[in-house]
Design a protein around this nucleic acid. Sequence first.
DNA 1: CTGAAAGCGCTTACAG
DNA 2: CTGAAAGCGCTTACAG
Lengths: 350, 350
Amino acid sequence: MTTIGDVAKAAGVSVATVSRALRGVDRVSPHTRDRVLAAASELHYVASPAATSLVSGRTRGVGVITPYFNRWFFATVVSGIEKVLREDGYHVLLCDLEGHTFDTRLPITQTMLWKRADGAIILNVPPVPSERSVLDRLGLPVVTVGNRQPGWPSVRIDDGAAMALATRYVVDLGHRDIGYAGTVPASITHLQTPYDRREAFTKVLSDHGLVCPPEWTLECDWTAAGAAEHADRLFAQRDFPTCVVAASDEMAFGVMSAARRHGLRVPEDVSVIGIDDHVHAEIFDLTTVRQDVEAQGRRAGQIMLDALRSRAGDVVVDDVLDVELVVRGSTGPPRRAGGGQRTKESVVVA
Amino acid sequence: MTTIGDVAKAAGVSVATVSRALRGVDRVSPHTRDRVLAAASELHYVASPAATSLVSGRTRGVGVITPYFNRWFFATVVSGIEKVLREDGYHVLLCDLEGHTFDTRLPITQTMLWKRADGAIILNVPPVPSERSVLDRLGLPVVTVGNRQPGWPSVRIDDGAAMALATRYVVDLGHRDIGYAGTVPASITHLQTPYDRREAFTKVLSDHGLVCPPEWTLECDWTAAGAAEHADRLFAQRDFPTCVVAASDEMAFGVMSAARRHGLRVPEDVSVIGIDDHVHAEIFDLTTVRQDVEAQGRRAGQIMLDALRSRAGDVVVDDVLDVELVVRGSTGPPRRAGGGQRTKESVVVA
DNA sequence: CTGAAAGCGCTTACAG
DNA sequence: CTGAAAGCGCTTACAG
């Protein structure tokens, strides 16, 4: 509980001088400074952030708002943000919006951020109008990751392009009967990515005169387990695709798992492709479209830092990171190139 | 930027009355209260946490100190903590100690927590003496997760018992040639779990007159990729075990992956068992010892909340959660029960 | 280079 | 039930 007054007393100077000496601003005589530093260190003095913040109006905290936090993508982004902020003495204030089900989330409130953070980084959740006005009223710099919002800088990949890359790859491999994992319930309004990826998938297919029927389209909660459950039903059907495109690697894991459970070999019987290059993608030999997730966090942190030092001016950057197709063992040409339904029996026997 | 003064003016009362009305303490006439509430809401007033904290001495924040954060176990614990704290209006201050390599971590400093948090929850890292004295000086309630420290309540599993359960299971299955994944470089002093699990493994083996030779012992960074890399070398040896016990599921994934890459079938050619019941364990059909990680976070959060309301008194609880063997498809009896080295050739041909 | 004093935005005895 | 005032621990003009 030592305060600046204790240090002043110990060093025999005024609190103003202690403040100056400790922060290294203004001129302070070397001799005085040394005395102050010694006293502060002796007393284990650390300035009260509340007092500093009250007088300076700055908190040295950045709110990180995330729809889920306990998922690889988000934890990785936060990790990147944290490392960059930390170097400049900023800390992250975690705001997890995860609700009780996949379809719901908590609202972004003024209380979360007000006078608590100097800026906010929003991961993947497009604010609804009322949230937008909360954020605007707060007057903090905002950076978004994973999607773009008018007036705010963003860091992301092009979800449509990433999905198009994956889909085109398997079409070029000769697949015509292609399933899709990763649609979400219509009630989901707090994520944009599922819609963008789905749209790009459908577009590439239709460009090739193809269509993915509803019974090959798996709606789930974007987890491996959720995808596995639905893929299980898919592979139980008499007709199923020669390839499944998953909108994320975790769902791709689920699809691969379900395939194996049905005695199908990957990629001989079914090809599977994902998006992300999840930490485990290489281990499980998954073909995917790689994005550098931690780099997105780092860049978002850097843009925030620049904004806090008002280096950025008024330029609203839209930092779109490259993605890259990573071909591994989970994809191959279809058994019978050119399409045609295969029955489950023929596969198992083959 | 509306302050309590603005609300007072709008409601025609003093700031003291606004404070009372808004916090619902003390008697305030219903009429006055309504006027204050209306004015506050109209003006979007939220009290400045810095000012509140300065005068009250409490921050309504809890520091969560974690060795890595972007790993399933830790992100899951934090998620559990966050959900419980949130319900009582507390937020989490994330303190990630991850250094540049697996062997190093950042120190816990006074600056991290001082006047910034009302308590600290420490995940899996045993503080060194200097950190212990920082923490003691801070005078905050501390709860540990994942290991036990004198004087602090803890939430954890019994690492030794969990590992013994896994090891005994595969020994009972008939395995005699057993490898181990999960030793760490001797330079690692900031984690206890690797040592406790290793010790229990060795103990069970020796109880059965068995020993795991150094060349079957995989030292790694406790990631799937790290384990895969070392397992790759293991399976390239002429003699390798009929079973690998991994100290975590993620390492088990790596081992399974390496086995498959060598044309070995799991469990026919090699059994693999882990500890955790990672989100993906079921998907990948991994036999494991289950621990409820999110529950550990929730309980730690609850103990912290109790301590902050000083409900807890002086009892230092040691909350040891049960673990449970979950048998799945990655384990089976050895090819030749009773041991005896198998050559790689014989396996591949078989 | 250094100190006295005002002020950041609240809460909490203390009066009334 | 309500208000005036002190005080939480700092920083920052303002003097000197």
